[in-house]
Amino acid sequence: MINNKIKIYGVPMSQAVRAVLWVLFNKKLSFDFVLTVPGSKEENGTRHPNYLSKFPNGTIPALEDIESKFFMAESHAIMSYLCNKYEWIDLYPKGHEERAKVDDFLHYHHRNIKEASLAYFAPMARPDLGLTEDVINMAKKLFKNGLNALETQWLNNNTFICGDNPTIADIAAYVEIGQLQKQFTNLFDFQPFPNVSRWLKDMTQVKGHDDVHLVLAELGDISQNPPVMEDLMGANIKGFKHIANKLANFDK
């Protein structure tokens, strides 16, 4: 279904951007993907006045609903908005209690599972950020606490985080955890976590996974040699072009 009424701003390497893209690819809802560089003051950057006039927090992802002239940011909020707007109740259940379980995890996610990027990805991919050892170690502790909670609680009796079917809670978690897998950046050993490992494998079968994660396949194993900026840019461009090509053929 062609839909030129939605624009998504960001880069494929961003974990949060991938979550939003995955929801849209899963539902095969076409959109315009606007390549937007985080932190840049250039015309295509998040610190440019034109961007800030729409999205004051200056972050990615961001959504522009052209039809309603509505602007918003924050990946979890965007995913919820899309599911509400298009009634995708499989990804975001309609029942109050079922939806509350999804919201529960999405709120929990921020200072636990999301720490995967700060703990493992950023120190290798973005050493220019100058993260201190204390910050990295705290992020590792928080991430492992979250991973243990997934292993022993959420995924111990459920196929997916909130039940028998994947929701936006799973998508939000996977883009953080999944990026560390051997087939991508190879930055974490999940062997001691059998429930999480099984869930990771199940999530690769959720429609849209391969398309939005091609950027990580292009980046590859960075466990021994940190990528240079050209590597990150190259993977982003290839990921962006792949997504653009897929969007052009959504109706075919």
Rank of each mutant, 00 (worst) to 15 (best):
Gln153Thr: 15
Trp22Ala: 03
Gly208Phe: 04
Arg126Met: 10
Met13Ser: 13
Thr46Leu: 11
Gln15Cys: 05
Met1Phe: 11
Ile8Tyr: 06
Asp90Ala: 14
Ile6Ser: 04
Met138Gly: 08
Val17Glu: 05
Asn156Arg: 14
Gly146Phe: 00
Asp170Met: 00
Asn3Phe: 11
Lys85Cys: 05
Pro123Gln: 06
Gln181Ala: 07
Asp164Ile: 12
Ala173Ile: 08
Gly239Met: 10
Ser53Met: 10
Val37His: 13
Phe70Asn: 07
Gly239Gln: 10
Val212Pro: 04
Leu219Phe: 09
Asn249Ile: 08
Lys54His: 03
Ala248Phe: 09
Val20Trp: 01
Leu29Ser: 07
Phe160Ser: 06
Ala119Trp: 03
Ile237Tyr: 13
Asn4Gly: 12
Val11Asn: 04
Leu155Val: 02
Asn50Leu: 12
Ala235Gln: 07
Lys28Pro: 03
Asn158Leu: 09
Pro49Leu: 07
Lys241Leu: 15
Glu133Lys: 15
Tyr81Asp: 05
Arg126His: 13
Leu52Thr: 04
Ile237His: 13
Asp32Cys: 12
Asp32Leu: 14
Tyr108Asp: 00
Met79Tyr: 01
Arg198Tyr: 11
Val20Gly: 01
Ile177Pro: 00
Lys182Arg: 05
Ala73Gln: 15
Asp32Arg: 13
Ser53Lys: 15
Leu118His: 13
Asn112Lys: 15
His110Thr: 02
Leu106Phe: 00
His109Asn: 12
Gly146Ile: 01
Lys182Phe: 01
Trp22Cys: 01
Ser117Cys: 12
Ser53Val: 06
Trp88Pro: 02
Val20Ile: 04
Leu129Gln: 13
Glu151Lys: 11
Lys238Asn: 08
Ala217Val: 12
Glu98Ala: 12
Ile222Asp: 00
Asn236Val: 08
Ala248Pro: 06
Leu232Thr: 04
Phe55His: 15
Phe250Ile: 14
Ala100Pro: 02
Glu74Val: 02
Gln181Asn: 05
Phe160Leu: 06
Val23Ser: 01
Pro38Val: 06
Ser223His: 06
Val196Cys: 12
His76Gly: 03
Leu131Ser: 10
Asn225Trp: 02
Leu187Pro: 03
Val215Tyr: 12
Asp32Glu: 15
Thr46Phe: 12
Lys54Cys: 04
Ala19Cys: 04
Asp210Asn: 12
Met124Arg: 11
Leu247His: 12
Asn26Glu: 08
Ser75Gly: 10
His242Met: 11
Val37Leu: 13
Lys252Gln: 11
Leu21Val: 12
Tyr81Ile: 07
Asn236Phe: 07
Pro61Ala: 04
Trp154Val: 08
Pro127Ile: 02
Asp202Asn: 13
Lys141Asp: 02
Thr204Asp: 01
Arg47Leu: 12
Lys41Tyr: 07
Lys246Ala: 07
Ser40Ala: 14
His110Tyr: 03
Thr159Leu: 09
Leu118Ala: 13
Val196Met: 10
Ile136Trp: 09
Val196Asn: 08
Tyr81His: 11
Val20Lys: 02
Asp134Cys: 10
Phe70Pro: 05
Ile89Leu: 09
Ala172Asp: 01
Arg111Thr: 11
Phe105Tyr: 05
Gln224Val: 04
Ser197Asn: 08
Tyr120Trp: 14
Val17Ser: 12
Asn165Cys: 11
Ser30Lys: 14
Thr159Cys: 08
Lys54Asp: 00
